[in-house]
Design a protein around this nucleic acid. Sequence first.
DNA 1: AACCAATGGTTCAAATAATGAACCGACATA
DNA 2: TATGTCGGTTCATTATTTGAACCATTGGTT
Lengths: 266, 266
Amino acid sequence: MGTTSKALSLLNFFSRATPQIGLSELARLSGLNKATVYRLLGELAAHGFVEQVGTGREYRLGPAFLRLAALREKHVPMRDVALKQLTDLSDATGETAHMSLLNGEVLSNLAYAYSNRHGTMVMMDDAEVLELHSTGSGLAVLAYSPKSLVDEMLSRPLKARTSQTITDPNQIRALLPSIRTEGIAASVGGFEEDVFSHAAPIFDARSICIGAMAVAAPVSRMTDPLRMMIRDNLLAHARQTTRILGGFPPDTFPTREPQMMLQKEA
Amino acid sequence: MGTTSKALSLLNFFSRATPQIGLSELARLSGLNKATVYRLLGELAAHGFVEQVGTGREYRLGPAFLRLAALREKHVPMRDVALKQLTDLSDATGETAHMSLLNGEVLSNLAYAYSNRHGTMVMMDDAEVLELHSTGSGLAVLAYSPKSLVDEMLSRPLKARTSQTITDPNQIRALLPSIRTEGIAASVGGFEEDVFSHAAPIFDARSICIGAMAVAAPVSRMTDPLRMMIRDNLLAHARQTTRILGGFPPDTFPTREPQMMLQKEA
DNA sequence: AACCAATGGTTCAAATAATGAACCGACATA
DNA sequence: TATGTCGGTTCATTATTTGAACCATTGGTT
């Protein structure tokens, strides 16, 4: 791993739960030498990627990201595109719709939209990180990711977010083929209790899966007709989102009308 | 300069004008070896800080910034705070208010607010970069920055954005003391023709200047009474913004009521 | 008050990772 | 076919990164 990667990976230790971290703690978390972390933080700080809180204490993410995010969004208005599609999708289904992007080995939220049709709804949070094994979106991404990522991902111990989280790698592997034939992944209570989530993958110009679009509803509201309705709408909107973003589903991706397919070996 | 700094500085070559850059071009711009740039881009790409456009062509900023910006803003809601203050300031003055943060040797926009009192107003742009020598905000920041930054900054050739831009380093240096006694910098048409801009510095917890808040009005609308009104409102709102963000103006910063001060040597 | 275990920060020889000139094959232009 | 540029790759040389040990402070415990 190059020096730059080490520096950048330091940034991943900042999260909702631990928004600011001290030097020694960060050295411990990253497994790097304290002096190394100190120097790397210094370089990151010089560019506004981290900053020190108050007078000489812990570090936190810096203001540079605001500028770069604005610049990125100005040139590649993913969030805008996603938000429009999500609003439509949320209106059509009456449930919460959201989209997240693959970032290393986790998904990070890009945007979400609520419906006001029901008194209860699944709440989302910017800056939340979704694991690949415990969420519908994660499973959708896994199903369309190269074997290397799946193996890498499933070789690590899988954390149970709820009592219903699937933590057996083989069980997860067994789900993937049917997700591929459906084009949709489902997860019941895997990330949060009482949330039934459907998700479909999003692809880039090289037909590589870059994230997922999902509809999340309370388990109590889920019925088979609703599932069908969500499934159809989700597939359509995910497809359209991929297209608007300039991407293409892979050849193996099911078309709108279910049909017989030959399974191809990658 | 460390390797990490080199990698991070590559990101600064992406701008509104050149949102995507090829490998060779980036090597030329940065003065680094092509192989080096290639490797650095690879590491940046692995973390989502850059990505390649379409199939193996130019590079552009990646999606990671969206997540990190959201995370930063969640923990340090600068933009929200600024937006509230700017809305107030814009309402009070009837003109466009904006705030920008010091990022290396330039200012980048954080937020802005328009007024609807007049038919014409100064328009702002996210992701725009303001130079220190040609803008009111820049002068305000220079006046409260360490001598080293000022020297560094003014040793380079200064670009004339308009016919009214001040490009003589000595002339700029001569402005700084009066800005310090006023607590406010003014610039007439330095960045864009016909724009009269007032700006006040914003400080962090260590009393270091981190950016500026400004009011920009058409030159044609500017009168002495308006200047006084803007000055008072701007000073008050800048002060409050500094305070809400957890910062402190330095001891030398003028209080609301103008008063005699002894000039201190730093 | 003395002690201990943290913290952020610093040093410098040793080890490692970054570097850059040259080289590919592919593509475009002429 | 010849020429220039592109993105990408190689590998011996070089320069940067690294990490153990060491400070000076701070805060808690005895």
